[in-house]
Design a protein around this nucleic acid. Structure first.
Lengths: 235, 235
DNA sequence: TGAATAGTGTCTTTCAGACAGTATTGG
DNA sequence: CCAATACTGTCTGAAAGACACTATTCA
């Protein structure tokens, strides 16, 4: 770098993309948007992660930009937003050297049911991907997000953010199991959750054709809890 | 985004910074570089993380850019390089909206002793920072790197990358303890490491004024090992 | 009363924590 | 033999795995 603020060299394109997860229909799903079907845009008509260019006039920082894009597509703000990583190379965008800052968000089932943007749609995750072929390197980013989510669910309380405001312990366990793709032991799960200072019972029960279940809610402004052991370490 | 590749809007500055850790003099240290003392540059004379602008002609991708900056300052390539996160905002660089992609690298004690660039120097880490006031938001990035390193050392084998090619188990344990800032139990440490399929004994011993210690080396091209429990979970 | 699901208890296993005890070198 | 450090063994405790058992609702 020379002196006198020599900033007249070409700069990469800078974008932010958000991997938005929710549990719908008893499955882990991700929100995708369809790219415009104009030939002048890269990947016309393809599905992609919600995202776009950083607006240096409007976005104060990267996270604000991610929140904006999330809000644009879902109308809600996520209870959990974490930076996933960044991907930048000469090849990932045909328009030139570009770098994207990827975030991942967890939405409660209630929030995921609201009014989506017209070009947005939920897709079920199968294994570590989704059926349609994704634009750019978004398949790779999505895979990283799924791996990160699965890894953290082994030893954190992240699935709590996928729940509606009131939920039962069996429902919470089901969310863990959906993300992990394997069953968990009921009693170990219960003691872990109840000793974690994460949730609190409310004076209501979930009724059904069987024994009612205690309803809980997340404790106020609760950051994710980290456990000292993973679940059920697959040998 | 309109059609016809309307890319003529202002782009953020894009940089890569690397937090380079090594153990020297029985302490965790980080490599910093001094910024040029010209008034036309931001933070003249201040210490900063090694880094700089992405060169869209020369750097194939972000990681290649990070490797280049690491090599420039230390002359070596790191056995471990992990993406840490990105920081981008209107305020962090007086020259305008900028985003940096931060990496962190672990260097073996041997590699950290080589010939540094003239403007580079090692600094001991105290707590979660370093004595000099850092340029930009680099104090925040350094703090995040230290927290990430400490957190991962609880349940991974990362300190193995801070070792020279041949080392004893007590030496490896000492590296864990330096990073964590607390002592570990000898026998639990040994069984954990030896069952991890991480290191292998070589036909040599480390001599001293006492019982010789078995020397080990990292197994070939070994990715970090994840343990199912943390050490010594602080209550 | 029985189906269904919620929730508890009990026994076992695994592995870290604590710490004592043995091993092997140089002086 | 002694100091010093490497290494092993043994007991304990905490939390998970497995799984049986009890509890409470509706039909």
């Amino acid at each position: 770098m020379s002196d006198r603020a020599g900033l007249d060299f070409p700069r990469p394109l800078t974008t932010v993309d958000v991997v938005i997860f929710a549990i719908k229909s008893d499955a882990l799903q991700v929100l995708l948007v369809q790219r415009p079907d104009t030939e002048s845009e890269p990947f016309p008509g393809a599905w992609a992660l919600p995202g776009g260019f950083v607006d240096i006039a409007g976005d104060r920082d990267l996270e604000a930009c991610a929140v904006r894009k999330l809000k644009d597509k879902t109308g809600v703000v996520s209870p959990y937003l974490e930076q996933l990583g960044s991907w930048g190379s000469a090849a990932r965008d045909p328009r030139g050297w570009s770098a994207t800052h990827a975030y991942f968000a967890l939405l409660g089932e209630h929030a995921a049911g609201g009014a989506l943007a017209a070009d947005a749609q939920w897709f079920t995750i199968g294994g570590e991907k989704v059926k349609p072929k994704l634009a750019f390197d978004h398949a790779e980013i999505l895979q990283a997000a799924i791996q990160r989510l699965r890894a953290k669910v082994e030893y954190t309380s992240l699935p709590a953010y996928l729940m509606p405001p009131e939920f039962t312990l069996p429902e919470l366990q089901r969310s863990f199991e959906i993300v992990l793709g394997r069953p968990l032991e009921k009693s170990a799960f219960r003691t872990r959750m109840l000793t974690a200072d994460l949730i609190e019972p409310i004076a209501k029960m979930r009724k059904g054709p069987n024994r009612p279940a205690q309803l809980y809610r997340l404790k106020k402004a609760k950051a994710p809890v980290f456990f000292a052991r993973t679940f059920n370490p697959p040998e």
